[in-house]
Amino acid sequence: MKPLLRCCLLWLCLPLLAHAAELRIDLGHGARIWTTAQLLARPDAAAVTIPDDVAFRHSMTYRAVPLRALLPGLGPDQHLQFVAADGFAAEIPAETILNRQGAQAWLAVEDPTHPWPALSGSGKAAGPFYLVWTAPQAARIGPEQWPYQLASIRALPDVAARFPAVVPQADASAEVRQGFAAFKRSCFACHTMNGEGDAQLGPDLNLPYNPTEYLRADLLRGFIRNPQSLRRWPEAKMQGFPTRQALSDADLDAVLAYLRYMAKHKAAH
């Protein structure tokens, strides 16, 4: 009877365990832990519909909280890192979050009594927390700025201050500097560069070899747009940047210029 009793107790506790999911927010003046139940009960929680959701690839409606309401005292000159449970680490300037015209960031919170469906193609879960955007095109919000399985949000110095080996030198061209900006926004959430960065999903893009050293430019450009165009692999994690809104042709060309530049500026490791 004892094993049966333990199973029954575990089954009864599952809803409580789901409600106990936690999001850690640290802006540098003491961390705040928010539970699923606390966030769902907030008076500013609202139903938010995302017509073309990045993770689910179709319209989704969430119970969500305006993200800036969870970031008291955040200044526009600060920088935020959003870390997911799978090692994804999105870097977003605070001014993008604080923007009150156009794009708005929302923290979608999964209600354990009405769980979200599994992600198409992978069967993985997106919850319990997911950063979603309304009118993302107004601030050129790309797919890498929609982290799901979110575990923590923290204020940090910007990428250039934390990881000097990824920064082009002062004499780099304007196109290389543009490429670095696009790389930070679109690539650095999954990849490291010269052994530096916090992401844990994808390989380093300069060590031991830079992709520009072994792929033709047209193949690399196609791979970034659609990774399956180079290798068909059902388990591939990289989703690519098929739309010009997410990564314009000019920004893609600039990313390639930055990669070619960094191939000549490898860090010693």
Rank of each mutant, 00 (worst) to 15 (best):
135 A>G: 03
166 V>K: 04
262 M>S: 11
236 A>K: 07
22 E>V: 13
215 L>A: 03
57 R>V: 14
81 Q>K: 13
3 P>V: 03
20 A>N: 06
236 A>V: 04
155 A>N: 05
43 P>C: 08
90 A>D: 04
56 F>W: 13
217 A>Q: 14
183 F>E: 06
200 Q>N: 10
35 T>G: 10
178 Q>A: 15
262 M>T: 01
233 W>V: 03
181 A>Q: 11
224 I>K: 08
245 Q>H: 08
102 G>L: 12
155 A>T: 05
237 K>C: 03
193 M>G: 15
143 P>N: 08
30 G>R: 14
244 R>W: 08
82 F>R: 06
4 L>K: 13
136 P>H: 05
39 L>V: 02
127 G>W: 10
248 S>E: 12
122 S>F: 08
67 L>R: 13
116 W>T: 02
219 L>R: 11
267 A>C: 00
70 L>Y: 09
173 S>M: 03
222 G>Y: 01
54 V>M: 07
91 E>K: 05
148 Y>M: 06
158 D>E: 11
16 L>E: 04
250 A>P: 00
216 R>L: 10
88 F>G: 03
10 L>N: 01
177 R>F: 11
39 L>M: 07
55 A>Q: 13
204 D>H: 01
228 Q>D: 08
228 Q>F: 09
56 F>N: 04
28 G>R: 14
215 L>P: 00
222 G>S: 10
113 T>Y: 15
16 L>F: 15
157 P>F: 09
90 A>L: 04
221 R>N: 07
104 Q>V: 09
60 M>H: 05
140 R>M: 10
105 A>G: 02
33 I>F: 08
116 W>R: 01
242 P>T: 06
142 G>F: 07
118 A>P: 03
177 R>I: 06
79 H>V: 04
207 L>S: 00
213 E>D: 07
25 I>P: 02
19 H>M: 12
251 D>T: 10
263 A>M: 08
182 A>V: 09
79 H>R: 07
269 H>G: 04
4 L>R: 13
113 T>F: 15
235 E>H: 08
268 A>P: 00
261 Y>C: 09
142 G>I: 10
22 E>G: 09
15 P>R: 10
6 R>A: 13
202 G>Y: 06
63 R>L: 09
96 T>F: 00
15 P>S: 11
268 A>H: 12
252 L>F: 11
251 D>A: 07
67 L>K: 14
194 N>W: 00
167 V>D: 12
203 P>Y: 07
204 D>E: 05
118 A>I: 00
232 R>H: 09
77 D>E: 13
224 I>M: 14
186 S>D: 13
208 P>W: 01
252 L>P: 15
56 F>L: 06
216 R>H: 10
220 L>I: 02
217 A>S: 11
4 L>P: 01
21 A>R: 09
180 F>C: 04
221 R>K: 13
264 K>F: 06
233 W>S: 03
34 W>T: 01
77 D>V: 05
9 L>C: 02
193 M>N: 15
122 S>H: 10
58 H>G: 09
239 Q>E: 14
145 Q>A: 00
241 F>V: 00
87 G>P: 02
243 T>G: 04
130 Y>A: 03
66 P>L: 14
77 D>R: 05
163 F>I: 05
159 V>F: 13
106 W>G: 03
66 P>T: 12
235 E>S: 04
116 W>H: 05
208 P>C: 02
87 G>C: 07
120 S>Y: 11
42 R>E: 02
197 G>D: 06
212 T>K: 14
